[in-house]
């Protein structure tokens, strides 16, 4: 899939990150890990949902922040696509809960998306198509997760909770999406079978043939279409399964550390899966100036990547401070120990 000179883009955005955090050192202590796991992953703490939070509540809070940031009338929304790999129901959409909670009209289409960590960016692409074709006025694309990691598994150190919502439209843009490109193969690097509580993964196989191959292929594909290089962008955001992969893939593609620094939030909140790339983009929008460019590439296991080229407009300065920033959410952290974390995540069976 490819598209350029789209003339559509982001009208508003909002994020939500639960207030609870567990330190990676605390998880390592419980499992007797002698290595400095936090340092080796470059992830020091991760966000944990409250007992009464799930993907739907996170999606609603993020969507409400997106609506209030631009003071939008939710009845203008014609489509809601919610990307997650931890939808509360196996059968029954998350998006209908979001639509009702934010006060949409009933004249809109809803579908939930799933593509490991990239379902949220796939939701943005779907909205871009509907807006550009004139079928809808505004589209709401959400990436949210309360991701799962089996007790003691490597994923447990990073699997976190959070989400971001983007309103896509063609007028009053805060950022134009100049182009998008996707690269997809059938690569079983990470999966969760129907009815299973925790995902499985291919260990080291999740790196080179999965994350790096797909992110670099999508990124290079988009830059080739647009005739641009890393030096043409002020910022870059790559999917953040840990704190090492995005840094390494940025260097591999020729981006500098300063370009990815504003959006690199995984060391403090963990991997929010479908929320990961989108929260990174939000953290970048939180500080980008009009006229600056952002390069974004997500990754979803299974496997695929969606790349976007984004140019920030002058309107961003008018609405940026009307909703909480990513840093605002990061700042309100309440730390819990492993026992409380296990209770919050339903790892204790009563």
């Amino acid at each position: 899939m490819r598209g350029d000179h789209l003339g559509v883009g982001i009208v508003s955005y909002g994020v939500y990150i639960p207030r609870y955090r567990i330190k990676v050192d605390e998880i390592a202590r419980v499992w007797g890990e002698v290595e400095d796991v936090a340092r080796s992953l470059n992830v020091y703490e991760k966000a944990v949902p409250d007992l009464d939070e799930d993907t739907a509540t996170i999606a609603v809070e993020a969507a409400r922040n997106a609506i209030s940031r631009a003071d939008l009338d939710p009845r203008r929304i014609g489509a809601i696509y919610t990307g997650s790999e931890s939808h509360p129901y196996a059968v029954k959409p998350t998006g209908t809960i979001v639509g009702e909670a934010i006060g949409c009209s009933h004249s809109h289409t809803v579908a939930d998306m799933e593509f490991a960590c990239k379902a949220g960016t796939a939701a943005i692409q779907a909205c871009l198509g509907l807006v550009r074709s004139g079928m809808i006025d505004l589209g709401l694309a959400i990436g949210a997760d309360v991701s799962q990691g089996a007790p003691g598994d490597a994923l447990e150190y990073t699997a976190a909770a959070g989400g971001a919502a983007y309103v896509v439209g063609s007028k009053d843009l805060i950022a134009e999406i100049e182009g998008t490109y996707s690269f997809t193969t059938d690569t079983p690097d990470f999966w969760r079978r129907e009815g299973m509580p925790y995902p499985e993964h291919g260990g080291r196989f999740t790196g080179e043939p999965a994350y790096f191959k797909h992110v670099t292929s999508a990124a290079k594909g988009l830059m080739e279409i647009l005739g641009r290089g890393p030096e043409d962008y002020d910022y870059a955001v790559f999917h953040q399964p840990n704190g090492k992969f995005p840094v390494r893939v940025a260097a591999k593609l020729g981006f500098k550390k300063e370009q990815i620094a504003p959006g690199l939030v995984v060391p403090l909140i963990g991997n929010t899966y479908s929320g990961s790339t989108l929260i990174g983009l939000a953290a970048t929008l939180d500080q980008a100036k009009p006229g600056e460019s952002i390069f974004v590439t997500s990754f979803g296991s299974g496997a695929g990547s969606d790349a976007f080229s984004i140019r920030v407009t002058e309107r961003i300065d008018d609405i940026r401070d009307r909703a909480p920033s990513v840093r605002d959410y990061i700042a309100i952290a309440e730390y819990i120990d492993y026992a409380r974390y296990a209770k919050h995540k339903g790892k204790l069976r009563l």
């Binding site: 009464d52 939070e53 799930d54 739907a56 509540t57 609603v60 809070e61 509360p88 909670a101």
Partner: peptide
Amino acid sequence: PVFRILGKEGERGIIYYGTK
């Protein structure tokens, strides 16, 4: 106000959402 799960009908039933 915050949007939260208000209750669940066990493991198989409906999940109720609303304001806390």
